[in-house]
Design a binder for these strands. Structure first.
Length: 968
RNA sequence: GCCCACGUGGUGGAAUUGGUAGACACGCUACCUUGAGGGGGUAGUGUUCGCAAGGACGUGCUGGUUCGACUCCAGUCGUGGGCACCA
């Protein structure tokens, strides 16, 4: 009995003591992180106030679409960076707005609903919960009281509201801003539209006041649609039959839908459009005023595609067969080459083709038109080399020479760009040149001293015009100005700036999006009253298009608007007198994300989109972090809406984000095992040379830091390989590695939850930053996290006394060495955060902790400063140490340490001594020495003499405090 | 084809903006510590010649500017991204 009891008592004696010491000493990140996440939530530590004497700072992340897959380690990268910056700004005394929300309308939830019948709102709710849990685990300092969800009626009320405001506006080119539609009506009633300089549909007829006043209300409304900033138009759209929806150009990849990969065809449909083209120039100009990455600005500049030139009209020649003369408008960037035109080319889809084609050519032209209509965009794109076209048989007359110019059609001219017609100048444009060569059309040379026998000459800068009447001898610029003047005098043309940017189609044939606040009377759209917003999404039985091809909202039974009761009523009640059908389309994904950054400023406001006080305090986003994939989508549309809001005086800044950073993508490091062809034998990586093998993806969690496979784990994971033979290289089986996009199908997805569980959120945050520059794409490799994990443990140990086994800070005056280490760190870390160079600040922390550990520093003065420095990066650990150091407020409001030069002052320098620019040895010398003294000391040194080997130095360069270079 | 970004050890990357290339980590090697470990520690680790001291080479490639170049200039190759028969 005693024999057992004695050692047992011994254990009892030692265990509690041992455990206690162990617990105090060891870095128990799970307990610490749970504790502080709870503390922040309970105390609303990061709640931002709209009224404050402090200066504001707004740090914004692109809000996520809550997908069913949850977050992988690539998603939080930008959030960690912005969180560090937000926390840093709080330490600097700013009132920081750092919100988060969800872009929760979208196709995946809808497709899931189609498959399962589950309402998208339910899936969305579930996904959001999951996202929130994952985000919370990472210790972000979001002000969750400001959360927005684009699918929430209290939010999309304001998306609908903005839509109505756009509907009620038009763009006046004279005032160069959006104006109220009632102003336009007033002017139309007084003077017609001849003097109204507006952005409007191309086919808008010129009318006088009498004509306007003579229209009935419906006709007037139809006419106004030509001006409204959001309008209904028959547009040729990318119709995807499989999805039953229209896709934007940027939602189509290689001719198939981005989501699902279904075929896409061209089709005419009545759609809502946004007149973003009205803002083309201002969207370009605005880029100059904001600190956004150049590649992103380039992408937007490209997308807007401004080109300067002239628009002019040619008239077709009458003939016995074609008895009327038709105008053909063209746009050209080279009006100076007008005398070099030797043919015209129309897009096969051009409306005039039918009218001007002669009997003789009819068959050929029809065949060609038919042929090119069949070709998909994809074919046309893939097949750039083939030159094809057909002659219409008709001519236009040259506006100055009167010469007849043959009219051709060719599919290299795009119906959707410019006017769908070009004046072809083969000597000055390679495509025109190739076309002319192919069809034996003459190529007149209108350039002085240029050989065009092999190719066209398109160098504007070195152009001297010849054979061109009054343009002879002029350069590009002068010739263009002269010809534009001449065209204007003749009344057949003018200088023009053309944009590639198209108006944005705003209708989607989907269920899970914002309903339009629109009902129809006689096919004319009317807005429901603002006071009745939001118009909430109706329930439907099925989320698919209806059998008659209507959008999913066509399945709703209660989807009609009663103008008397001002509410949604059953479809049965539609009488087209009081009750009218509602719009069946919904808004696209980018609608909800185009103003969310302003709504965060005052998210609970039910009276206004945001209060005047809120917008005038927060103004704009100081730092916006997100992916570059939104360059020509969200980031362009949101700028457009902001400019509109600015015109209306609702926001105070024309550009909503001063600075933007694109975080790079985190790539996966896939692992491969190699199976010998035709066998069940797997070979370790080093054994595959000369063998024919099939690489097979292995889950990255089965591979350790040395690329060794857990064979048993692999067999369990892929039971079909249970009996496979594994040929080892010595003791181990090695896998191959390859960097690919992180994706489920490649088994290289790394889940942040697992990492938090094993190493903690602070380690994950540090590691994501340590990986490399924020903007750069970089591969993920979980193995490396042990580096920052050991660093955190080392940091923890720095605050504990090994002897006492407890938390320990000394109150003694710090030694100069430790002060130097600290201030070196303050300097570097401050510079790094300001430059968004988070990877280098993590290394700086490591160096700092290495040095302080070596110095056995326990000084409160030093270590408390270090806690604050590191708090933005590892907030949980910092809070815990801060509390242990005796503080009872959150470290997040402590002032950031200030760098003091005096601690870094050196009195000597280890000079690198180089010969012909190559460093040979170093020499420590006092910094007080003059140039001459340094030179003398260095030259007399024995190592210098050895290097010189008796030769005389030709020249000695001394840069005091930096370097000595001796030229031999 | 046009526009943009980027090329540094076995790997991720650093370099005070023209001044000691490879900081800090991962990995690897050897050793110490622990009952054991996904623990802690010490030393080494660009390539190459050499027992060593020491030398040579080295930032995609070729030139140039400079006392001195990863850094600036010209050209070139490669990788990634955007746009694309845009008149």
């Amino acid at each position: 009995m005693w024999g057992i009891a004695f050692p047992f008592q011994l254990i009892l004696l030692f265990l509690p003591h041992y455990k206690e010491k162990d617990q105090k000493m060891s870095y128990d990140f799970r307990r610490i992180e749970d504790k502080w996440q709870e503390y922040w939530a309970k105390n609303q530590t990061f709640r931002a106030e709209n009224k404050s004497d402090k200066k504001k700072f707004y740090v914004l992340d692109m809000f996520p679409y809550p997908s069913g897959a949850g977050l992988h380690v690539g998603h939080p990268l930008g959030y960690i960076a912005s969180d560090i910056y937000a926390r840093y700004k709080r330490h600097q005394g700013y009132n920081v707005l750092h919100p988060m929300g969800y872009d929760s309308f979208g196709l995946p939830a809808e497709q899931y609903a189609i498959q399962t019948g589950q309402h998208p709102a339910i899936t969305t709710e579930t996904n959001i919960k999951r996202y929130r849990e994952q985000l919370d685990k990472l210790g972000f300092s979001f002000d969750w009281s400001r959360e927005v969800r684009t699918s929430d009626p209290s939010y999309y009320k304001w998306t609908q509201w903005i839509f109505i405001q756009l509907f009620n506006s038009w763009y006046d080119k004279d005032s160069d801003k959006a104006e109220s539609i009632s102003l336009l009506e007033e002017r139309l009633g007084k003077e017609g539209n001849e003097r109204i300089n507006a952005v409007c549909d191309d086919d808008t007829p010129v009318i006088d006041a009498a004509q306007w006043n003579g229209m009935d209300r419906d006709e007037q409304q139809k006419f106004l649609l030509k001006y409204r900033l959001t309008y209904l138009a028959d547009t040729e759209v990318n119709w995807c039959p499989a999805l039953g929806t229209v896709l934007a150009n940027d939602e189509i990849i290689n001719g198939v839908s981005e989501r699902g990969g279904h075929p896409v065809v061209r089709k005419k449909m009545t759609q809502w459009s946004m007149r973003i083209t009205a803002y083309a120039q201002r969207l370009l100009d605005g880029l100059e005023t904001i600190d956004w990455p150049q590649p992103l600005k380039d992408a937007q500049t490209n997308w807007i595609g401004r080109s300067v030139g002239a628009s002019l009209t040619f008239y077709t020649a009458k003939s016995d067969e074609i008895t009327s003369s038709y105008p053909i408008e063209v746009f050209t960037t080279r009006p100076d080459t007008l005398f070099g035109v030797s043919f015209m080319t129309l897009a096969p889809e051009h409306e005039l083709v039918e009218k001007i084609t002669t009997k003789d050519q009819k068959e050929e032209v029809e065949r060609y038109v038919e042929k090119s209509a069949k070709r998909s965009e994809r074919d046309r794109m893939a097949d750039v080399k083939t030159i094809s076209g057909a002659f219409t048989g008709s001519y236009v007359l040259h506006p100055f020479t009167g010469e007849p110019i043959p009219i051709w059609i060719g599919d290299y001219v795009l119906a959707g760009y410019g006017t769908g017609a070009v004046m072809s100048v083969p000597c000055g444009d390679q495509r025109d040149y190739d076309f002319a060569k192919h069809f034996n059309i003459p190529i007149p040379n209108i350039f002085n001293g240029v050989d065009i026998s092999e190719e066209a000459f398109s160098d504007k800068e070195n152009t001297i015009i010849a054979n061109s009447d009054f343009l002879n001898g002029l350069a590009y610029k002068e010739a263009s100005a002269r010809i534009i003047k001449a065209l204007e005098e003749k009344g057949i043309g003018k200088g023009k700036i053309n944009y590639r940017l198209r108006d944005a189609v705003f209708s989607r044939q989907r269920y899970w999006g914002e309903p339009f606040p629109v009902y129809y009377i006689n096919g004319i759209p009317h807005m429901i009253p603002e006071t009745r917003l939001p118009l909430t999404l109706p329930e439907v039985e099925k989320y698919l298009p209806t059998e008659t091809g209507e959008p999913p909202l066509g399945n709703a039974t209660d989807w009609a608007w009663c103008t008397k009761s001002e509410q949604v009523v059953a479809n049965d009640l539609i009488d087209h007198k009081q009750v009218f059908p509602l719009e069946l389309n919904t808004m696209p994904g980018w609608a909800g994300s185009s103003q969310y950054f302003n709504r965060y400023m005052d998210p609970e406001n039910d009276e206004e989109i945001f209060s005047k006080e809120a917008i005038s305090y927060w103004e704009d986003v100081d730092l916006y972090i997100g992916g570059i994939e939104h360059a020509t989508g969200h980031l362009l549309y949101s700028r457009f809406w902001q400019k509109f809001m600015f015109d209306k005086g609702w926001v105070v800044k024309e550009e909503y984000a001063r600075k933007l950073i694109n975080q790079g993508m985190i790539l996966g490091t896939s692992a491969f095992v190699y199976r010998e062809k035709g066998t069940q034998r797997f070979l370790s990586r080093d054994l595959i040379e000369g063998k024919e093998v099939d690489p097979i993806h292995a889950d990255v969690s089965l591979v350790n830091a040395s690329d060794e496979l857990d064979i048993e784990g692999f067999k369990k994971w892929r039971p079909e390989f249970k009996n496979a033979e594994f040929v080892l290289d010595g003791e181990v089986f090695q896998v191959g590695r390859e960097v690919e996009k992180m994706s489920k199908s490649k088994y290289n997805v790394v889940n942040p939850d697992a990492i938090c569980q094993e190493y903690g959120a602070d380690a994950l945050r540090l590691y994501e930053m340590f990986l490399g520059p924020l903007e750069q794409s970089k591969p993920w490799n979980t193995a490396g996290i042990t580096g920052v994990y050991s660093f955190l443990k080392k940091l923890w140990r720095l605050f504990h006394s090994h002897e006492k086994g407890t938390f320990y800070l000394s109150e003694t005056v710090p030694n100069p060495e430790s002060l130097k280490t600290l201030h070196k760190t303050i300097k570097k870390v401050t510079e790094d955060i300001e430059a968004f160079s988070f990877n280098t600040s993590v290394s700086t922390f490591m160096i700092c902790v290495n040095e302080l550990s070596a110095q056995k520093c326990h000084s409160r003065q030093i270590l408390e400063a270090l806690i604050i420095l590191i708090a933005p990066y590892a907030p949980h650990l910092a809070e815990e140490l801060w509390a242990k150091a005796g503080h009872n407020t959150s470290v997040s409001v402590a002032s950031f340490p200030i760098f003091e030069e005096k601690y870094l002052v050196e009195d000597q320098k280890e000079y690198p001594i180089s010969f012909n620019g190559k460093m040979r040895f170093t020499l420590t010398l006092p910094l007080s020495l003059s140039k001459e003294e340094v030179e003398a000391k260095v030259l007399s040194h024995e190592k210098t003499q050895a290097q010189l080997a008796g030769k005389e130095p030709k020249k000695v360069i001394v840069v005091p405090g930096k370097i000595v270079n001796i030229v031999v």
